[in-house]
Amino acid sequence: MLGACGADSYRVPWEVSSSRPVRHMGPPPHSVVVERGDTVYGISRRYGVPMKDIIQANRLAPPYDLHVGQTLVMPRPRAHVVRRGDTLYAIARAYQVDMNAMARVNQLSSPYLIQVGQHLLVPDQQQAPVAETPPMPTSHPRVIAVTTPLPGAKPALPVARSGPVTKPVVTASRPSPLVARPPAAKRSVASRPVAPPRPPPPPSRTTSTFAWPVSGKVVSRYGGKADGSRNDGINIAAPRGALVKAAENGVVVYSGNELKGFGNLLLVKHADGWMTAYAHNELLIVKKGETVKRGQTIGRVGSSGNVTAPQVHFEIRRGSKAVDPLKHLGRQMASAE
């Protein structure tokens, strides 16, 4: 007997395409007034605050619907004010978090340029675990903070007051001996952060219907349930490790596991405003920004998230509105429960 699928209780509260700016410089405000088109995901991206923190602070319940004019309390995450000589690597080590996670939450892309006085959000250690004894690198990307401070900037770097003292690996006026400095001619200095690259537009669709992501028995249908919960897609039982395939040509706009209940989740954007979601994967094979073709392997079936048996939670959306996948899929040899 399959366990209850987390997707029956949690709907993907994400609108990944938006014309509104997704980056807010500096710390987030204490509150935000919801405007037309806002979603929990969009607000989380815009201000760099984890979705789960926004949901918990405002006691939002599935499906996390927002209303125009609604005021949301914005939790105040940890932040670091960049000072002269700081590098992203050194800051991440000082706070004992993963550098890639810190770059991701601040929407920084290579070469990870930062600016004196810039506020960098520090992710939770639980969200970005660091190895207990990480190997000491012989070299790493050195990101130099430029020396023109922002108005009102105050340097701040926490230091432990009890127990063994861990010295932050940051530089003030001279480089750390552990840092391999590149030639001076190749050092990059910028006055403002580099904007993250935009994903490419999705390619044209091959047909008007979508292909099944996996072959198997439909164990949960689209729509409301007797207990008052709702499934915005269908759940297809399949052997663990079976190949999960793209339902149509598209571009991967999300690949991760930050959303509670869905486990390892993929979102693929298609032409004409369509979107498909693939949850509970054991393995994600493609990354954000990759272009995929209809029938291409994008993951493997698993039971991550709020399920106890291997299956795929599959959604089809037109814009932000979920539709019944069974009305848009071609034929496959599977029976519905």
Score class of each variant (00 low, 15 high):
residue 206 T to F: 05
residue 276 T to I: 07
residue 212 W to F: 08
residue 252 V to G: 14
residue 320 S to E: 10
residue 269 K to F: 07
residue 275 M to V: 04
residue 301 V to P: 02
residue 326 L to C: 10
residue 212 W to E: 08
residue 298 I to N: 11
residue 228 G to R: 01
residue 239 P to G: 02
residue 234 I to M: 06
residue 209 T to H: 06
residue 279 A to Q: 09
residue 269 K to C: 06
residue 289 G to C: 08
residue 233 G to D: 05
residue 215 S to L: 08
residue 243 L to C: 03
residue 234 I to V: 15
residue 323 V to E: 09
residue 297 T to F: 02
residue 200 P to N: 07
residue 327 K to I: 01
residue 272 D to G: 12
residue 268 V to H: 07
residue 256 G to K: 00
residue 211 A to D: 14
residue 307 V to G: 04
residue 294 R to Y: 05
residue 279 A to C: 07
residue 233 G to C: 02
residue 249 N to Y: 09
residue 215 S to C: 00
residue 266 L to H: 11
residue 320 S to W: 08
residue 258 E to P: 13
residue 282 E to T: 00
residue 288 K to Y: 04
residue 325 P to F: 02
residue 298 I to F: 13
residue 297 T to D: 05
residue 258 E to D: 11
residue 257 N to H: 07
residue 253 V to D: 10
residue 315 E to V: 01
residue 206 T to P: 01
residue 279 A to S: 12
residue 326 L to S: 14
residue 209 T to Y: 06
residue 272 D to W: 12
residue 220 S to M: 04
residue 263 G to H: 08
residue 257 N to D: 13
residue 278 Y to I: 04
residue 216 G to A: 09
residue 325 P to T: 04
residue 201 P to E: 13
residue 247 A to H: 13
residue 299 G to T: 14
residue 257 N to F: 11
residue 232 D to V: 00
residue 280 H to S: 04
residue 222 Y to K: 05
residue 258 E to Y: 01
residue 288 K to M: 09
residue 215 S to E: 13
residue 274 W to E: 14
residue 301 V to K: 13
residue 220 S to C: 02
residue 201 P to G: 05
residue 261 G to P: 15
residue 232 D to M: 02
residue 309 A to Q: 15
